[in-house]
């Protein structure tokens, strides 16, 4: 059942985005996401939309996959845009009882829905083109300055690595336990929600017991291999910024300044 799970949403390829250093990718994606939310007129918004279209096109990942990732937020998307439609102030273009639609309301709705779509597309293009292990690696290195605040970044990264490593193992185990309990006559597929949740208890208890046993053994195995935290540890995989990273950095800087200029010199339709 769960044999063929893929972790994360990584889509193998060799595009510019795949070749970028994961650290640079995270930084640039975050910058773009911030600037989606400080677009105040259609020119600025259009600039960001164009950028996202280029990113999606460059990723080498089928557009279908991007659209699929929208499915999860479609309800929030509709809900917030409809709500915003009635939210604006000014002269009403149409009204019914206490509900009225204004021009500002229409703008609000358009901006909000486009912002949400862009947000999903940008974050998806990060996860589609980066292996989960590279992501944890990059996060560890990017957060390194937090060590000065006595936050152990290495430990957080190690936890993420181990979690990623054990997800498939624990899924497989859940599968086994469920089969074993079914063989003993457990009924997990019928009944209402409360009954089904109750039926999960005989699965969860052995799963937790085994997870703790695994944790104990893993800790021992790590100690045997001289693990003693992040201090004095080197890494085999070194991350290097390459030319591609600097080209992308340059492109994003140009776009960002474009957005700022549009915001300053062109009339705002959003506040």
């Amino acid at each position: 059942m769960v044999r063929d799970i893929t972790l994360g949403q990584f889509f193998p390829g060799n595009s510019i985005l795949h070749r970028m250093d994961p650290r640079m990718k995270i930084i640039l994606m975050l910058t773009l996401i911030i600037f989606i939310f400080i677009t105040f007129n259609f020119f600025a918004l259009g600039l960001v939309v164009a950028t996202v279209v280029v990113i999606v096109g460059c990723s080498g990942v089928p557009v279908k996959l991007f659209l699929k990732s929208l499915k999860a937020v479609i309800f929030i998307l509709l809900f917030t845009s409809v709500l915003n439609l009635f939210y604006g102030s000014g002269t009403a273009l149409w009204h019914w009882g206490f509900l009225s639609i204004t021009l500002a309301g229409i703008y609000f709705a358009i901006f909000i829905s486009i912002r949400i779509i862009e947000l999903i597309f940008i974050s998806s293009s990060l996860t589609f083109t980066t292996q989960p292990t590279d992501l944890t690696d990059a996060i560890e290195r990017l957060l390194k300055p937090l060590n000065h605040l006595h936050i152990s970044v290495h430990e957080i990264a190690m936890m993420m690595t181990i979690a990623l490593r054990f997800i498939p193992t624990l899924l497989e185990e859940t599968d086994k336990i469920m089969s074993a309990q079914k063989a003993r006559g457990a009924d997990m597929e019928s009944g209402n929600i409360v009954q089904r949740i109750k039926a999960m208890i005989p699965v969860l208890v052995p799963l937790f017991v085994s997870a703790f046993r695994r944790a104990y053994e893993l800790a021992m195995a790590m100690e045997c291999r001289c693990y003693r935290g992040g201090e004095g540890r080197t890494r085999m995989k070194q991350l290097h910024y390459s030319k591609v990273d600097f080209y992308c950095l340059g492109a994003v800087l140009i776009i960002v300044s474009g957005v700022i200029l549009c915001n300053i010199f062109l009339p705002a339709v959003m506040r």
Binding site: P132, T161, E217, A221, C224
Partner: peptide, 13 residues
């Protein structure tokens, strides 16, 4: 030291 259960001694993915 190599332990009995290979699943519980592999750290990375």
């Amino acid at each position: 030291l190599v332990l009995q259960n290979p699943d519980n001694q592999i750290v990375a993915s």
